[in-house]
């Protein structure tokens, strides 16, 4: 089990030594029952850090933000930032390192092990409590969630409310770290792609109908893009701002401009957006499940990425974020790549 005091001690040490600029970790949220990300610059505030199964966010996103901020500054502070990192988040850091987006010296990783648990899914918990409002969540022995509801306290085993991605987790222990806390216990899931296989077993028509229904809900708030640590492009194909309209822009230039994906949140445009996002994340998505968690319309976006993760594993024996030395999936090839589908 991760010793929280140990985590605080390590975080405090690097912060006090001035080795890192700040520590990104989890604190208790004032607005919800789940943890909230926090940026700690004051060693005194390290005391507020927590680590429990409510720490759902993938903090790797903030490393990307930090890099973008640094690019804007004239004299940036080049010290690394410390980040509390779960197994899945460490895979995201691995992908960023593999793509040479960040340097290893840019981050100080406080690796925490999920061991045999993971993080909880708030929606699953709400379902378990049959819609009863719950207050503060505590954990006894880290095996049960103790929720205070209006009808007293209810105990639910953490295993029953684990997020879907944690059930299918392939890296419960960080793969890369500077300080490691907890026990190293690399479990392999029995069926890492069970949810996708269930979808695949449907007929083509049923799947088509499913996605038609799901993707026509999308309002294109781009929350999935904003929360994704891999969506770090400065310009995105769905943004209209990457075409500057000046007084000199002729009507013809405007007319001839290629609009790959329109801003309208109609079904076909939503398909375009989600398909392109899935393709851009192939071989990079490490299944942190953030896109699905933040979706205000509960679109199972994770399936698209998970499906391609499975395909990459089956066809090309490629697992994202596992090896920083390997070339990226779509930037490499092998002579023996399958081509049965090509005529």
């Amino acid at each position: 089990m991760v010793n929280l005091d140990e985590l605080k001690k390590e975080a405090k040490r690097v912060l006090e030594d001035g080795k890192v600029k700040y520590v990104i970790g989890y604190v208790k949220s004032k607005a919800s029952n789940m943890a909230a990300p926090a940026f700690v610059t004051d060693p005194e505030e390290i005391e507020n850090l927590i680590w429990d199964p409510t720490c759902v966010q993938n903090l790797t996103k903030f490393i990307v933000d930090e890099k973008k901020r640094k690019a804007q500054q004239k004299k940036p502070d080049t010290r690394p930032v410390a980040v509390v990192s779960k197994g899945c988040d460490s895979r995201a850091i691995n992908v960023l390192l593999q793509e040479k987006y960040i340097e290893r010296d840019d981050v100080f990783i406080l690796g925490v092990a999920c061991e045999d648990l993971g993080v909880i899914d708030e929606k699953k918990l709400a379902q378990k409590l049959k819609g009863k409002r719950f207050g503060e969540l505590t954990f006894d022995d880290k095996k049960n969630v103790v929720a205070t509801t209006t009808d007293g306290t209810v105990k639910v085993p953490v295993k029953e409310v684990l997020a879907e991605r944690c059930v299918e987790c392939q890296a419960n222990t960080p793969l890369i770290y500077d300080v490691f806390l907890g026990e190293e216990d690399r479990r392999k899931p029995d069926a890492p792609f069970a949810s996708v296989e269930k979808m695949e077993s449907l007929s083509n028509k049923e799947r088509g109908a499913f996605w038609q229904e799901q993707l026509s809900k999308c309002v294109r708030c781009y929350a999935c893009r904003s929360t994704c640590p891999m969506c770090y492009c400065d310009e995105c194909v769905v943004d209209t701002i990457n075409f500057a309209v000046t007084p000199d822009t002729t009507a013809q230039e405007k007319a001839l401009r290629i609009k790959w994906i329109e801003r309208a949140s109609t079904k076909s445009e939503n398909f375009g957006y989600h398909l392109v996002r899935a393709i851009h994340l192939v071989g990079r998505c490490i299944d942190c499940g953030e896109c699905e968690r933040v979706c205000p319309l509960d679109i199972p976006i994770r399936f698209l990425n998970k499906k391609l993760e499975k395909t990459a594993k089956e066809l090309f024996d490629y697992e994202p974020g596992m090896d920083t030395e390997k070339p990226a999936l779509v930037a490499s090839f092998k002579d023996e790549d399958p081509e049965e589908f090509i005529r």
């Binding site: 979808m199 695949e200 083509n204 028509k205 049923e206 799947r207 088509g208 109908a209 499913f210 996605w211 038609q212 398909f271 398909l275 899935a278 393709i279 192939v282 698209l304 499906k307 391609l308 395909t311 990459a312 066809l315 090309f316 999936l329 779509v330 930037a331 090839f333 790549d337 399958p338 081509e339 589908f341 090509i342």
Partner: peptide
């Protein structure tokens, strides 16, 4: 490169129906 990429696109299009 095309062979790899198209294989993935094909799988994805099939998956969405």
């Amino acid at each position: 490169y095309a062979r790899r990429r198209i294989a993935l696109v094909k799988e994805l299009l099939e998956f969405v129906g």
